[in-house]
Amino acid sequence: MPFQISLEPGGQRFTADDDQTILEAALAAGLVLPYGCRDGACGACKGKVVSGEVDLGPVSTGALTDADRAAGLTLFCRAHARSDLVLEARDVRRTDDIPLKKLPCRVQRLEHAADDVMIVELKLPATETFRFRAGQYIDFLLSDGRRRAFSIASAPHQAEHLELHIRRVEGGTFTGHVFGDMKEREILRFEGPLGSFSLREDSRRPIVMIAGGTGFAPIQSLIEHAIHIGLERPIALYWGARTRAGLYRDELARSWEQALPGFRYIPVLSDAAPDDDWTGRTGLVHEAVVQDLPDLSGHEVYACGAPAMIDAARRDLVARCDLPADRFYSDAFTFAADSSR
């Protein structure tokens, strides 16, 4: 039995079957709710149930706390409608004309950017057009039915090749293959584009970008896209890593200061090694933002990295820097229970 779902404050309407999550039903209806991991781990799809009942599947307690539940919040990627619903969901978009595709690809190039970071360049079929928004990701489709998600680091105008930044995960099946047996010309299959993380191009507000580790990948896509379209808004990029080797694209980030007017790059190390000879900023990357920009009331923030970093940045920038909560856009890198990456 399909249930009627209404969204506030936008007034959009769609239906959801018993076996569909709210997110799945919205996407099928051509509506994009904010979302990231789709497995209840990142919290990007969190929204309020104004009226009606939902059945919530397994979720991370970090993504949906007891306080969230008490406030009537749920995760749209895990919740199934059990009645007609009125939901509060902001920043809802239409899917417009960018289709979701399943495509083969060939490994074109492998680059060891750091001991635990591999840059993988994929060549797409010449007969296919693959469109995406800067900041989105793809899922590799593995032979056993599992999926592995990675953000696209290249910009949309470079869509004939896709660049991914893959971090080695201890015990990870797929990343073990990437760092061990993968060879150039290997054929893979993927589905995409996925995710709602993207640049709000219709805004004129100054931008703060925060990357942790390989969270730099979608940020690279956003900035290369901004350069391509001639974006004229101040952008400050804070890239956090443990040691200097973690800033594996440091020269590229520094080059953007010449390519994009109003761009600033601030690298931050949390555990600099003695041989790093580091004289730059130290500590947690989001704390550097708090120190430099105590008033973010007129800004937008785009943050990518581990869930703990995303949660801390969201909490502190909203509470300590007056950032409006609905202007914090994030892509949290999550890992499934089976060492997915």
Rank of each mutant, 00 (worst) to 15 (best):
F76E: 03
H80D: 06
H80K: 12
A81G: 10
S83V: 10
D84G: 09
D84C: 03
L87K: 03
E88Y: 13
E88H: 14
E88M: 11
A89H: 03
R90W: 07
D91V: 01
V92S: 02
V92P: 01
D96M: 02
D96I: 03
D97M: 04
P99N: 08
K101Q: 15
K101G: 07
L103T: 10
C105N: 05
Q108Y: 12
R109A: 14
R109M: 13
R109W: 13
A113D: 05
A113H: 02
A114S: 14
D115Q: 09
D116P: 08
M118L: 12
I119E: 11
L122S: 07
L122Q: 04
L124H: 00
L124Q: 00
A126Q: 15
E128R: 14
T129H: 13
T129R: 13
T129D: 12
F130G: 02
R131G: 12
F132Y: 15
R133C: 12
A134T: 08
A134H: 05
A134F: 04
G135W: 00
I138Y: 03
F140A: 07
L141E: 06
L142I: 09
S143K: 12
D144N: 12
D144A: 04
G145P: 07
R147G: 09
R148G: 06
S151G: 06
S151E: 03
S154Q: 08
P156G: 05
H157T: 14
Q158L: 09
A159N: 15
A159Y: 07
E160T: 08
H161G: 10
H161P: 11
E163A: 12
E163P: 04
L164S: 01
L164A: 04
H165T: 03
H165E: 00
H165I: 00
R167H: 06
R168I: 05
V169F: 07
E170R: 14
E170D: 15
G171W: 03
G172L: 05
T173C: 05
F174A: 04
T175K: 02
G176P: 07
H177R: 15
V178D: 02
F179V: 07
E184K: 13
R185S: 13
R185K: 12
E186L: 08
I187R: 15
R189D: 04
R189C: 09
F190D: 00
P193Y: 00
L194A: 00
F197Q: 05
S198F: 07
L199P: 04
L199W: 01
R200T: 08
R200W: 09
D202N: 15
R205N: 12
P206K: 05
P206C: 08
I207S: 00
V208T: 11
